[in-house]
């Protein structure tokens, strides 16, 4: 019935919609390619043979068959790639856990409690964002040395958490501010108090905020170079960015580009995984239906 007769105006509209959709998707695909190209080129290049890796990257894919030479040679730097990856993972994950725990509680406090000098304290915390952390590296180094935490991954984690907290507290306060007070009051009437209130009722509602804080904490800790270089002194404690510096510096003037490509690939994968895991919380509007 519907296929028997299609009016000309309907056809015209269908053609117009097809053209508009086509342009829309073509533009989208072009932008995607533009952003994905560097990753693809790096991944493909990391699987070239040793000699081929030094040549200009055209065509970007391995021409002499796949090989994991680059990864094997990457492993010869420092204390082995596994050791450094584990170092980086330990520092980054500990940074995420501590940052989320502290900023969750601090954000809740700043959002919900009334106490003297609340806004002054909050502004003070935010104001520390204006201090370039490079400028306080020397005092940080001295403090860590006094605490016996220099050249330790724990010390580095604490520095990362400190640097990450102002932004995270700010994020979490906003996240809690967006949760209507009535939900909390309803939960109090229902008998949820303190920690149970926070975990059972509020935590799911501020999950997008937590995801954001976690992603930022992970990425910043994972990619941080300067503090790691200065605060860590023994070879087997280095995190991946420091190792990459050593790889890129090369040996006797010759840079092993294959190893560099492999290192970049190793560093990128965890970031992608973290983002893909958390992005659905990052995007989702969880508050729908709570009030109004």
């Amino acid at each position: 019935m519907t296929t028997a007769k299609v009016s000309p105006s309907k056809q015209r509209r269908a053609r117009k919609a097809f053209r508009a959709n086509g342009a829309y998707h073509a533009a989208g695909i072009a932008i995607c390619l533009f952003f994905l190209a560097p990753f693809v080129i790096t991944f493909l290049a990391s699987f070239r043979h040793g000699t081929e890796a030094r040549l200009p990257p055209l065509p970007p894919w391995p021409t002499n068959g796949l090989s994991i030479d680059s990864y094997l040679s990457l492993d010869t730097f420092g204390a082995g790639i596994w050791q450094h990856t584990i170092n980086s993972l330990l520092v980054s994950l500990a940074t995420v856990v501590l940052t989320v725990a502290v900023s969750l509680l601090a954000g809740y406090g700043f959002s919900r409690y009334r106490f003297p000098l609340k806004n002054v304290l909050f502004v003070l915390i935010i104001a520390t964002l204006m201090i370039p952390f490079q400028s306080i590296l020397t005092p940080l180094f001295i403090i860590l040395a006094k605490l016996g935490l220099n050249n330790s991954l724990l010390g580095l984690t604490l520095v990362y958490v400190t640097l990450q907290l102002p932004f995270s507290v700010f994020m979490m306060r906003n996240a809690f501010d967006a949760v209507p007070k009535e939900i909390e009051e309803a939960a109090r009437i229902d008998g949820a108090r303190d920690l149970r209130l926070l975990v059972r009722v509020l935590l799911p509602l501020v999950l997008p905020g937590i995801a954001t804080v976690a992603i930022f904490a992970f990425l910043n800790a994972w990619n941080e170079f300067l503090a790691a270089l200065i605060l860590l002194s023994s070879n087997e404690k280095y995190t991946l960015p420091v190792l990459m510096m050593a790889v890129r510096a090369g040996r006797l003037g010759a840079v092993n580009w294959g190893a560099v490509q492999a290192g970049v690939a190793v560093m990128t994968v965890p970031c992608l995984i973290v983002f893909l895991l958390l992005q659905r919380y990052y995007m989702r509007g969880l508050m729908a239906g709570a009030v109004k």
Binding site: P180, E182, E185, R188, I189, G191, R193, G289, A290, K292
Partner: peptide
């Protein structure tokens, strides 16, 4: 504490828990 007073309250804005099903909202 509000939960020990033997009261229940209905808010203007409903204040339902958005991450729970209706059943869990009632049972919470």
């Amino acid at each position: 504490d509000p939960s020990d007073r033997g009261i229940a309250m209905v808010f203007q804005s409903y204040a339902l828990y958005p991450h729970m099903s209706v059943r869990d909202n009632l049972a919470f």
